Every structure is written in structure tokens, then in C-alpha cells.
Amino acid sequence: MDNTNALRTPEYLDVLMWLETASEDLITGAYWAATGSVKQDLRIGIQSLMDSDRPALANYFPELVINPIKLDELSVLFPECIQPLKTLEESLSVRDRDRRSPPKGYWAVSAVIQELKTEGKLSPSQSVLLAAELATFRT
């Protein structure tokens, strides 16, 4: 989290402390029921935690991810994704004709996403969303 959060009200700091340990279901319920400054504090806190301690919150709040990226945008933004994505796309095309054919390139795309995250080119929340989108091709 950035240092500006430390200058916030004690209520905001209480929200941050609660967010660190609350279940995803509790956070979701609180966020959708909240209004005004409480909702704003929750939004900022959720965004902060998605890119630090709790990236899985991106699955619950994809609309709060800053600069979300889709799989089809990866090859434009990161050339190292071109070949793995092309392999996956080709295998999915084959799979359309033969459902028994496994998706090839899935793990290569997954590895590239992890590498981009490790290099700091993708935020933790962006990588969670990309992994979730990629998972839809696995079944």
C-alpha cells in the first residue's frame, strides 16, 4: 500500500485491518451493501490488497482491477506471449472439431503470465484475472 493511506482516518485504517482477515464472502457483502465514504474506503482497500497481500480478491471484484488485461491483448503488449498464445489458439481450433483433443499451450501461457508477474510487468490482480480467463480453456 502507498504511504498516502497512512494519512487517512482511523476508520479507514480499521477497514484495512478488517479487509486483511475477512473472508471473500464477507468482503463482497460489505462492499455491495456499503455507501458513501465507507464504500470508497472499501474500494480503495480492496484495490490495495488485490495488488499486494490478497490478489485473489480480483476474482470477486474484477471491476476494481486497475488496468485489467485480457488474454487476447497479451500478445500485443508482450511479444513473448505470441507463440504460446498462438499454440493455444491453434489447439482450441482443433478442439472445436475434436472435443477429445487437449488444449496445447495452456501451461506455456500460464508460465508466461507468471513470468510477467514476477518481472513486475503484470500486477498480481491482473495475473489473477488472466489465470482465471485461461482456466476457462482447460476444461
Rank of each mutant, 00 (worst) to 15 (best):
A6H: 03
R138T: 00
E119M: 10
M17R: 10
Y60T: 09
E63G: 09
R138L: 05
M1R: 12
D98I: 12
A131I: 01
T9P: 03
R97K: 15
L122H: 06
L129G: 03
A58W: 06
L64K: 11
E24K: 01
R97D: 15
K104M: 13
S91Y: 15
S125P: 09
C81M: 15
P103K: 11
K104G: 01
P84S: 08
R54L: 04
I113Q: 07
E89W: 14
N67M: 07
E73T: 13
E20N: 05
G120N: 03
L130N: 04
L19H: 03
Y106G: 11
T139Q: 13
F78C: 06
K86C: 04
I82Y: 10
Y106Q: 12
K39Y: 01
V65D: 07
T21Q: 02
L74N: 06
D53I: 03
M1Y: 09
T87E: 15
G105T: 14
R138D: 04
R43V: 00
R43P: 00
S101G: 01
L122W: 09
E115R: 10
A6Q: 11
E119Q: 13
W18K: 01
R8L: 11
A56V: 11
S75N: 05
E115Y: 06
I69A: 05
N5Q: 12
D53N: 11
V128C: 02
K70D: 06
S48P: 01
L64W: 04
R97Q: 13
T21K: 02
R43N: 07
K117Y: 03
M17E: 09
W18A: 04
T35V: 05
T21I: 03
W107R: 15
L134G: 05
A132P: 00
R99T: 13
L7I: 03
L42P: 01
K39P: 05
R54K: 12
E80T: 12
E73L: 11
A132M: 05
L42W: 00
T35N: 07
L42Y: 01
L116S: 02
I82N: 06
L26H: 05
T87M: 11
L57H: 02
S127L: 05
R97A: 14
F78T: 02
L134K: 08
P124D: 07
L16K: 04
R97N: 14
F78W: 08
E80H: 04
I66M: 05
S101N: 11
N3A: 14
T21W: 00
F78G: 02
E133C: 07
K39H: 10
S123A: 10
R138Y: 14
L64A: 04
G120S: 06
V128Y: 01
L64Q: 09
A108K: 15
S127V: 07
T136R: 15
W32A: 05
A34V: 09
D25A: 12
D41K: 10
N3G: 08
R8D: 10
D51E: 12
K117L: 14
